[in-house]
């Protein structure tokens, strides 16, 4: 197998927030760059650009990953969910819990944290403890909140999504 000397842009086809898309992507662009600067999905934030902060967390095939360390071309054939994918006619329980607890101060870390939390809660499918939530979010830095209200919100959302005491 040989790669052409000048690849130009690659056409990458994937499921983005549930919809099939085809996007022209320069080979050296990261998924974060493709989302933010090609597709205007600005909900995914950048805080370090090298895996240290978690602000860029999205879901790849349902798992939370830092999009700054994924090549745009690598998502071909896969499913990418960004924070925009959680929008709907009603407020997602995680958003509602974050809002209620005032778990977002500047809000810059929040989309990434919500994506990590959503993947985790979906995988567990039961209410979680603060300690579990802390471990699941330990790749996402927040500089504003001391995590206190974030963990409150995740625990509350897990109870709402999966029934208190139900697991």
């Amino acid at each position: 197998m040989t790669t052409p000397p000048d690849q130009g842009e690659l056409t990458v086809r994937f499921l983005l927030n549930g919809e099939p898309v085809a996007v022209a992507v320069p080979p050296h662009w990261t998924l974060l760059e493709v989302l933010r600067y090609r597709l205007d999905l600005i909900g995914t934030k950048q805080g370090c650009d090298k895996g240290d902060c978690g602000a860029c967390t999205v879901q790849l095939d349902g798992k939370a990953v830092p999009s700054c360390l994924v090549l745009g071309s690598a998502v071909d054939g896969r499913a990418v969910t960004t924070v925009e994918g959680l929008r709907g006619p009603t407020l997602h329980p995680l958003f509602d819990a974050f809002d209620h607890a005032v778990a977002a101060q500047c809000g810059f870390c929040t989309p990434g944290i919500v994506m990590a939390a959503e993947a985790y809660l979906r995988r567990l499918g039961r209410p979680v403890t603060r300690a579990e939530a802390a471990a699941a979010l330990a790749g996402n830095l927040c500089r504003c909140t001391g995590y206190t209200k974030i963990l409150d919100a995740v625990v509350a959302a897990s109870e709402r999504l999966h029934g208190a005491g139900g697991g």
Binding site: R36, Y37, F98, D99, A104, P111
Partner: peptide, 22 residues
């Protein structure tokens, strides 16, 4: 105990921070 006036837009990725402007 209030919700913040701008929190939902921030957390849902609707609010446009400086680098979100183009």
């Amino acid at each position: 105990a209030h919700r913040k006036v701008d929190a939902v837009d921030r957390m849902r990725g609707v609010a446009r921070y400086a680098d979100d402007l183009k």
